[in-house]
Design a binder for these strands. Structure first.
Lengths: 150, 150
DNA sequence: GTGCGTGCAAAATCTTTGCATACGC
DNA sequence: GCGTATGCAAAGATTTTGCACGCAC
């Protein structure tokens, strides 16, 4: 399946958001978000990996700033924080094209595939309603072994 | 028929498992598993919480031993390791009665409820099949706000 | 110019590990 | 008694924070 990359609007949504809250667009923040956008919405990165990749491209940024930026971007809804397995959290770009995507994780090699399911959203919704909770999101993690690992 | 009140010390499943692998049942391991069994299968504990609770009941056990024991019990299939939110991993007793249970988590106060869903199992199964993976388990995490938090 | 953001290093968490001792079997 | 398990403390790994300086606006 070939999902054609969609073009993003002219004024950066991140910049707009920041300015509305009296905060600033900086080269570091731009770089972190750009990295995710270049790699696409199916990619999961750790703070260390982001640091490494940006350093490779001659971007000067400290790990502390990356952590602060990641927290900011998650709070603002640009990134999603994942807790799939050991070795620290990972982050992925949130995309309107895939509002309801889930993870199929190979427990041996860590390979991760995404899939979508409207059913899951419905299940989460009714579970939340039944207990009087207000749904934010549902995430299905499927732990499995990939073809190469069994 | 009523036999004389003789108490036969039945070896616990954990003890059996351990002996089969040339390992040992120790008071510490007994205590950790007992704690989970006393609290029931819907309870999620962190290593620190386990340490605190056992220390409260005059059990002498080090945090390092708790970490080692938790890893052991997860490997042996007695406990399940959860990565629901920040602040470290949590563990829960695995129970045959609830093979397919999921989590409804309040993102503000951390309150966690469990629910079951055959649908989810099916969704995970077909996702795994479609990619040629072999399913181990599916876990649905529903992030939400509980009635007290909104 | 104001005050938010960054880099640096130290601190805070959470978890693992080396080693000598204790103890289950 | 043999060899695994434990306790302790130190080391690791990951993430946060205090502070002075720099820079976006």
């Amino acid at each position: 399946m070939v999902a054609s990359p969609r073009y993003i609007a002219l004024p950066s949504p991140l910049e707009n958001e920041l300015h509305q809250k009296g905060r600033r667009m900086t080269p570091q923040r731009k770089k972190v978000l750009s990295l995710f956008q270049e790699l696409g919405s199916g990619i999961h990165l750790s703070a260390e990996e982001i640091h490494y990749k940006l350093t490779q491209t001659n971007t000067k940024i400290s790990l502390a700033t990356i952590y602060r930026t990641l927290r900011l971007l998650v709070t603002m809804g640009f990134l999603n924080e994942l807790e799939l397995s050991e070795g620290g959290h990972r982050f992925e770009l949130l995309s309107d094209e895939k509002p309801d995507h889930h993870h199929l994780i190979c427990v041996r090699c860590g390979r991760t595939e995404e899939f979508e399911s409207a059913q899951v959203l419905q299940t989460g919704k009714s579970a939340a309603e039944k207990m009087g909770f207000k749904l934010i999101e549902s995430t299905l993690n499927v732990r499995a072994l990939c073809p190469s690992c069994y």
